[in-house]
Simulated scan of single mutants.
Amino acid sequence: MTSHRCRTVGGSAGSDGSRPNRRKQPENRGKRPQISTREPIIQESETTEPVATRRAADVTESSRANRGWWDRNADDYQVEHGTFLGDDRFVWGPEGLDEVEAELLGPPEELKGRHVLEIGAGAAQCARWLAAQGARPVALDISHRQLQHALRIGGAFPLVCADAGALPFADGSFDLACSAYGALPFVADPVRVLREMHRVLRPGGRFVFSVTHPIRWAFPDEPGPEGLSVAASYFDRTPYVEQDEEGRAVYVEHHRTIGDRVRDVVAGGFRLVDLVEPEWPAWNTSEWGGWSPLRGNLIPGTAIFVCERD
């Protein structure tokens, strides 16, 4: 989930994020661990943590901030979540809903030979699973570092580093497309991304994407009891921004209500055929940011939109 390819979530498309959000309350400055893999990467300042706020952030600022954030934090992300994600699983979100069971892209046996684009691919775990089914995936992400992890794990399919809002593919290049927490949570103009997905899909093609369930924006991003009380307006679309001491955004997430997401899908030229809200399974005892068994049994954490191109 979440970001990736050089092409790459994360394809966070102009943001390319890939995976579940990490919203913190303003002025919460808990330090992230620094873990390196093969090549050195510039880390955020060890003396100054970004400040969390809510303010406007346009397409350019959001893309620049999230590309930088995922490049700096890809190592930590893969160390922290790599075991849960596996090297070649297709997981739609922290609940652990697996495509092998959900079949939102269709029965696995019908994927053979299909050209599939994953945006916000991160380390390309989903693309790797698709390749194992005989599909012909392309993994795209805005983060070069995330795609380096895809190379480290391996796989015989193309990796593309690009913005999901400007896909470097010809019209009608793909039969299917997918994104597990990649790109769409991080972009300021989701309709732009959806129109690009519509353009590169063939008639009858399907695009399935998962995002943080919009209701979560009304609650603190905490896994325990403190995360069960409404703390903000569900209808406040002001982006969540982490910025440095000079006011430059270093991480951005954009909130859309359920209604907004549906209208975005339609404005992008798609027909919405299903909206899946995975329930928290009894076997999943893990916590992932604000996702946890406690909260997952009470409120939805992920929304999956199944869209088709006529």
Rank of each mutant, 00 (worst) to 15 (best):
R261S: 15
Q78W: 14
G17C: 05
C6T: 06
P107S: 13
F186D: 02
G86W: 07
C126E: 14
V273W: 01
R29Q: 12
L201P: 10
R128C: 08
L111M: 08
Y240F: 13
D87M: 06
R72L: 05
A231P: 05
E49S: 13
G11I: 04
R38I: 10
V276D: 08
P20H: 15
C126Q: 13
G17K: 12
R89M: 08
T53W: 01
A139K: 00
A156D: 15
D274Y: 01
G182D: 01
C126N: 13
G204I: 04
E222L: 15
A282G: 04
W217R: 03
L151D: 06
G17T: 11
N66H: 00
A249H: 15
A127I: 02
E44L: 06
R29D: 11
A188E: 09
D71I: 08
C307G: 06
P281H: 09
G165S: 11
V79T: 06
L117E: 09
L167T: 02
S3N: 13
H213F: 07
V9S: 12
R38V: 10
T8I: 11
G182M: 05
G259P: 09
G227A: 07
W288D: 13
Y234P: 03
R29V: 09
I304V: 13
R271I: 09
A231E: 13
V191W: 03
W280A: 03
L294R: 02
V51T: 15
P108V: 12
V191I: 13
E99Y: 10
G30A: 14
V273L: 02
W69V: 05
G296W: 07
Q34W: 04
L159W: 07
E101Q: 13
T83S: 09
